[in-house]
């Protein structure tokens, strides 16, 4: 077997292995967020009134715009994957950069939203602005809100970094055959980050609002 491929037999074998590894890692990620959603499941029932009060204080407009941005970003990245499969290196970089750009816009809006919430004293703890008998449940909601959006934002940062790394690799290897697998693997991850948001959006902004 050729040395530079070790421990794989063929390039195809190596590629399959990389994709399989990413899927398995994502299975692990599902369980990571799964623990968080278990907390939602429990507290949104045991502390229903306060929880709903929390949901009603989130910023639905920013949340919706962000959902739109992230879905579009994922779709754009898919164009890069299609281009990679067709072997067209030039068509990879532009949509990938677009996807990363939309991701940055998402994070920008999210930070602004956080800023608004901090100034409204919605961060749980002493000085929390929602009061009344159900305030405890609202605090639990906001603990979950800040933690889950922070964790999701962290995943977005990693994803944006990975997309930029793909772009850098493509720009450097101009004229050579296009390595499809890095583009695909990053695409899997980026879609996962998107999928988490698709679950977070209704939980944070919609369920219990009306």
């Amino acid at each position: 077997m050729p040395d530079d491929l070790a421990p794989y037999d063929t390039p195809q074998h190596r590629d399959e292995t990389a994709v399989a590894g990413m899927w398995l890692f994502l299975a692990s990620e599902v369980l990571l967020f799964g623990g968080l959603f278990l907390v939602v499941l429990v507290y949104s029932h045991t502390r229903r009134a306060g929880w709903i009060m929390g949901v009603r204080h989130t910023n639905l407009i920013i949340g919706s715009i962000n959902t739109l941005l992230l879905l579009t970003s994922s779709a754009m990245y898919t164009l890069a994957v299609v281009a990679a499969r067709a072997g067209r290196a030039r068509r990879i970089i532009a949509p990938a950069l677009g996807a990363a750009g939309l991701g940055v816009a998402f994070l920008g809006l999210k930070s602004w939203e956080w800023h608004l919430e901090f100034s409204e004293h919605l961060f749980p703890g002493a000085g929390f602005s929602i009061s009344g008998p159900d305030a405890g449940g609202a605090q639990l909601f906001y603990s979950f809100y800040f933690l889950s959006t922070a964790l999701h934002g962290l995943h977005m940062l990693v994803g944006i970094g990975l997309i930029l790394w793909v772009c850098y690799r493509m720009a450097r290897r101009r004229g050579q055959p296009v390595p499809v697998i890095p583009v695909e693997v990053v695409g899997l991850y980026w879609s996962f980050v998107d999928l988490v948001w698709i679950l977070l959006f209704p939980v944070l902004y919609l369920v219990g609002r009306v």
Partner: peptide, 23 residues
């Protein structure tokens, strides 16, 4: 499949401990 659940549990614990918020 099990370790990530521990990870998130410890994050929740650390979050509560560090910021003194309710989890």
């Amino acid at each position: 499949l099990a370790t990530p659940v521990l990870s998130i549990t410890l994050v929740l614990l650390a979050f509560e401990h560090f910021f003194h918020v309710g989890v």
